[in-house]
Amino acid sequence: MKGMHNKKNLGEWLVTIPPLGWLFIFFMIPTIIAITIAFRPSSPYGDIEAGWTLENFIMLFSPTYITIIWRTIWISFISTIICLFFALPTGYYMARLSQKWRQIILLLIIVPFWTNFLIRIFAWKIILNPEGILQYILISLGIISKNTMMLYRTETVILVTVYTYLPFAILPIFAAAEKFNFKLLEAAQDLGASRWESFSRIFLPNISKGLKVATFMVMIPCLGSYIIPDLVGGTNSEMIGNLIATQAFIARNIPMAAAWATVLMAMILFPMGLVISTKLLSRKMAE
């Protein structure tokens, strides 16, 4: 009996050590290193010095930096809301289609996003270019003036963010809606519920898991966004990601970059942990 137990343990260790070891060495340890470096003082040349300090974090609370933290949060928030607004009807519509059309639209949504991420951003740079076609059309329609700059604005960052992450919102909502029994909506309406009532009180709660996944899928990469504001944003649309890159590559202040990274990590992992732990807690209570 004891021998069998050991054998089972050995089996577990054999399959667990490669993945767990890899993640431990190349994910957990680097993350811990980054967090500890955030508490190190930096020399004027940006080198890491001995000793411990909170200075890097105190610096983060200067007004310019607070603005950037807020901007990161609200850009992510608005982008997520817009993505959900478009993803919800799209997922709903796709789920009600015939099998054949469903597959076609699903492919049409997935395929463009297998092309390079940078190229998708580049496409918008071309469209919104001052010499580009959209500017030309909008000027002739009298919607914008000749001097309106459509690139390098915060709105552009939101637009391109939505373009990039919308499929990640559509897919989980569609997956949840596909499992939904649409007869329930008809039943509710037969029982006197209005169309809006049946949608909000029956459809939405039933696909809430898909909505949650969609929110996470858009919100998390948004908060850590770096390339989009870098390529289509202006000086007034810098986000935390840009600060990390600037500190790491241009200012070469590694402890400062690490401090920003730590703040961003806390911003993401704290709500995530909260959601997971409340879920675990409610499950325990139910038991």
Binding site: F26, A34, P221, G224, G241, A257, A261
Partner: peptide, 15 residues
């Protein structure tokens, strides 16, 4: 899965 790319890039570089 929850950690943004830029954080992973940064901490792996330091590592």
């Amino acid at each position: 899965l929850g950690v943004p790319d830029i954080l992973m890039g940064m901490s792996l570089l330091l590592f």
